[in-house]
C-alpha cells in the first residue's frame, strides 16, 4: 500500500507524518501519537468510547480513516482538559459521581463539548437522545444526565 502524507492539527499542535491509507483514526491517535485517553470498544460506531472531535464535530474514531483528518483539526480528551469547559463538566461529573469505570468517560466529555457549543436549551428527552451514541454500562446514565444538565446549564460558553 502506498503511504499517505498527512498534515493536521491535533489538540492545537501541528502533526505531519506518513501513514498507511487504511490506518484508523483511533489507532493513529493511540499508537502513533500516544493519545491513550481515546478508548476503543465496539469497533462499529455504536458505543462512543472512541469519540473525538474533527473540526468540532463528533466522530467515532474507530470507523474514521486517519487519512481523512488531513487539513483538519482534531480534539481528543487530552486537548479538552485545559479548557474552561472541561473544568466545569468535570466538577459536575465529580459532584454526581457520574464516573465509574471511566472507560466511556472521555468519549462522553467530547460529546458533551459538542452539546455545550450548540448552546440551545434542551429538554431532558433531547439530552437522552443526544447521549444515546455514548454507551455506559456502569452508571445507569442518570448521574451523567444530571451532571450534563448542571454543566451545560451554567457558566459562560467556553
Amino acid at each position: 500500500m502506498t503511504a499517505v502524507v498527512l498534515t493536521a492539527m491535533v489538540n492545537g499542535r501541528p502533526v505531519s507524518c506518513s501513514i498507511p491509507p487504511n490506518l484508523l483514526l483511533v489507532d493513529f491517535l493511540r499508537d502513533e501519537l500516544g493519545l491513550l485517553g481515546t478508548k476503543q470498544s465496539c469497533e462499529v460506531q455504536v458505543c462512543g468510547a472512541c469519540t473525538v472531535l474533527v473540526d468540532d464535530r463528533p466522530v467515532s474514531s474507530c470507523c474514521f480513516l486517519a487519512a481523512d483528518i488531513d487539513g483538519r483539526r482534531v480534539q481528543t480528551i487530552e486537548g479538552l482538559v485545559d479548557t474552561p469547559f472541561y473544568e466545569r463538566v468535570a466538577q459536575a461529573f465529580v459532584r454526581h459521581a457520574a464516573v465509574q469505570c471511566g472507560f466511556c468517560t472521555p468519549g462522553m466529555l467530547l460529546t458533551a463539548k459538542v452539546l455545550d457549543e450548540r448552546g440551545t436549551p434542551m429538554t431532558a428527552q433531547q439530552l437522552r437522545a443526544d447521549l444515546a451514541g455514548n454507551l455506559c454500562r456502569c452508571t445507569g446514565y442518570q448521574s451523567i444526565l444530571d451532571a450534563l444538565e448542571d454543566a451545560l446549564g451554567e457558566g459562560p460558553q467556553s
Binding site: T38, K39, E78, A97, V99, G102, T105
Partner: peptide, 21 residues
C-alpha cells in the same frame, strides 16, 4: 458520607491507565 471518588479526576482526564494502554 458522599466522599467524591478518588479516581474520578484521573478517569475524566483520560489519564487513567487500563491494560490496553
Amino acid at each position: 458520607h458522599e466522599v467524591p471518588r478518588s479516581d474520578a479526576r484521573v478517569k475524566l482526564s483520560g489519564k487513567a491507565q487500563f491494560t490496553g494502554d
